[in-house]
């Protein structure tokens, strides 16, 4: 079923008939920096798709649709959380299916100079985790503001996670607040290129222990190759991880007008 879902998402994303310019600048804003969510929402009727692959050949797909210009519905797979079954061994990322709903306001909606604001809720609905019934729920509040060539993002997440032990007992992480932040910079000399950097907290599952949150810092570059598509080259570092265990990944984003 997941193969079918992946291929369908891929076919949708590659449909050339849907490729139209989204903005005059040809640079649609994405609902995340690298790991941290941003306060940008997909335009009304727009569909944003993303595919990613890292150097360990772990990948992910995502799709987000704008709703009325004030909300966004998303569906994605990601490998952000890590699991440790026999702790001491290398912790490996596992695949999660996740749905999200975000509602917010654009920049300058109420007051001049007001940042964009988004309140979002994301919840996992499927997992390849070795732990039974592993799940993560997250609420985030993010503010984003463009300042010339720079776009700043700041906010906080409230994250809860849990899984069921072999004994049947539920092991949970109580809702925990963590900050998040991000930076996007489009140098004037390179109008297609955006430097990215962010910091966020994601869940980590250790067998026999309550889930915990660990920071993930990322940096990289987004290149607007086409008016409706960009590519990203990213490096991501995690807490308690040596430099040699960092992750290098590429992403392809495509913005489609599905039903505007």
């Amino acid at each position: 079923m997941r193969h079918v879902l992946s291929l369908v998402l891929g076919l949708v994303a590659t449909s050339p008939a849907q490729a139209e310019p989204i903005t005059a600048a040809g640079s649609p804003k994405l609902g995340r920096v690298i790991t941290a969510p941003s306060a940008w929402l997909a335009e009304e009727g727009d569909v944003m798709t993303t595919a990613q692959l890292d150097h360990r050949l772990d990948g992910g797909l995502g799709i987000a649709a704008g709703l009325g210009g004030i909300a966004e519905l998303s569906l994605d797979t990601n490998t952000d959380p890590r699991f440790c079954m026999a702790c001491g061994d290398t912790e490996e990322p596992r695949w999660f299916g996740r749905a999200g709903f975000r509602v917010g306001w654009r920049e300058d909606t109420w007051l001049p100079g007001m940042p964009a604001l988004v309140l979002g809720f994301r919840k996992t609905f499927a997992s390849s985790a070795p732990l039974d019934d592993a799940r993560i729920s997250e609420v985030h509040l993010v503010a984003s503001r463009s300042l010339g060539p720079v776009r700043l993002h700041a906010g906080a997440t409230l994250t809860a996670a849990g899984y069921t032990e072999a004994t049947g007992a539920l092991v949970e992480l109580a809702p925990t607040v963590r900050p998040l932040g991000g930076l996007e910079w489009t140098p004037p000399a390179y109008p297609r290129t955006t430097l990215l950097g962010d910091l966020a907290w994601v869940a980590r599952f250790d067998d026999g222990a309550p889930p915990a949150l660990e920071w993930v810092a990322g940096w990289g570059v987004r290149y607007q190759a086409l008016r409706w598509s960009s590519v990203e080259l990213l490096v991501r570092h995690r807490e308690d991880e040596g430099l040699g265990d960092s992750t290098v990944m590429i992403r392809v984003n495509a913005a489609l007008h599905r039903y505007r």
Binding site: H3, A51, L53, D58, L61, Q224, R227, W228, S229, V252
Partner: peptide, 28 residues
């Protein structure tokens, strides 16, 4: 997928074909 990981083939196909394969002029 048998090891519980993400379907790599699909991701590879998508990465190879999405966006960049289309011949559309980018912004000036």
């Amino acid at each position: 997928m048998t090891d519980g990981r993400f379907p790599r083939t699909a991701a590879l196909v998508l990465l190879a074909s999405t966006g960049l394969a289309h011949a559309e002029e980018p912004a000036a």
